[in-house]
Amino acid sequence: MASCCNHEVAIETLRGRQRRTLQITLAINAVMFGVIAGAALYGRSTALLADSLDNLGDALTYGLSLYVVSRDRTAKAWVALFKGGLIFLAAVGVGAQIVQRLISPAVPLFEVMGLFSLLGLAANGTCLWLLWQHRQEDINMSSVWECSRNDVAANISVLAAAGLVWLTGRAWPDLIIASGLVLLLLHSASRVLVSSVGELRAAASQRPSANS
């Protein structure tokens, strides 16, 4: 009996730590979405816009993850499936923006790109550090970790694009980096979707049959 109680206390302690981490990362990403989206529109940067959409997707993801912290593995798998869909939609949105920039070319402001990619890198690096300890706890937290890692990669990519725009005075580095981010988002979406579908199948196989 004591062992059972200790196990329940340990689980609740773990969930409490997960909630605190998700609350902090949710707040960071919600703020960064507004800041970076405004900078992307002002600076005419598709790569920076992709970065901001990633922050928006993460803010929604962390909110959903917070909701299912105390729920069963099936609920967590369904939310992870939804997260994968959000990542995929973000990739589609950035792809549409790339097409729009190809039709109506505009050289982005590399100063804005560089400054706000550094700001985003600091914010998302903090999130990644906070989530590191939770990355293998369950599918809910592992999918959150996946999103946060994407953010850091996106920030570094946008910073590289800013440097290339400064060197060349042209828009193509911004579009190339944005295209790379689309591929990263698609890859991440596929990983999350496959993991969540596998988790749902595993949960379904463990349910007692109607005849038993």
Rank of each mutant, 00 (worst) to 15 (best):
M1I: 08
S3I: 10
S3D: 15
H7T: 09
H7W: 08
A10E: 14
T13Q: 11
R15P: 01
G16V: 01
R19G: 07
R20H: 14
R20F: 08
Q23D: 09
I24N: 09
I28W: 06
V31R: 11
G38Q: 07
A40R: 00
L41C: 00
A47T: 03
L56Q: 11
G57C: 15
G57Y: 09
D58G: 15
D58W: 13
A59T: 06
T61E: 13
T61I: 13
T61V: 14
L64M: 13
L66C: 05
Y67G: 08
V68T: 06
T74L: 06
A75W: 06
A77E: 01
W78P: 02
W78Q: 14
G84Q: 07
I87H: 13
F88I: 07
L89E: 13
A90L: 02
V92N: 14
G95N: 14
G95L: 06
G95C: 07
V99N: 06
L102E: 11
L102P: 02
S104Y: 10
F110I: 00
E111P: 11
M113R: 02
L119R: 03
N124Q: 15
W129I: 11
L131W: 04
Q133D: 10
H134D: 11
R135M: 04
R135H: 04
Q136A: 10
E137T: 15
I139F: 01
M141P: 01
V144G: 15
V144C: 15
W145E: 06
E146C: 11
E146S: 11
S148H: 12
S148F: 15
R149E: 09
R149P: 03
R149C: 07
N150D: 15
A153W: 12
A153H: 14
A154V: 09
A154Y: 08
A154G: 10
I156E: 10
V158W: 02
V158G: 03
L159S: 04
A160H: 08
A161N: 04
G163Y: 07
T168W: 00
T168E: 00
A171D: 11
D174I: 05
D174H: 03
I176A: 12
S179C: 07
S179L: 12
V182T: 06
L184V: 08
L185C: 09
L186D: 10
S188N: 12
A189E: 06
L193K: 05
V194W: 09
S195L: 13
S196V: 01
V197C: 04
E199W: 00
A203P: 01
A204S: 02
A204K: 01
A204P: 01
S205L: 09
S205I: 00
R207Y: 00
S209K: 07
S209T: 07
S209I: 00
A210N: 01
S212A: 11
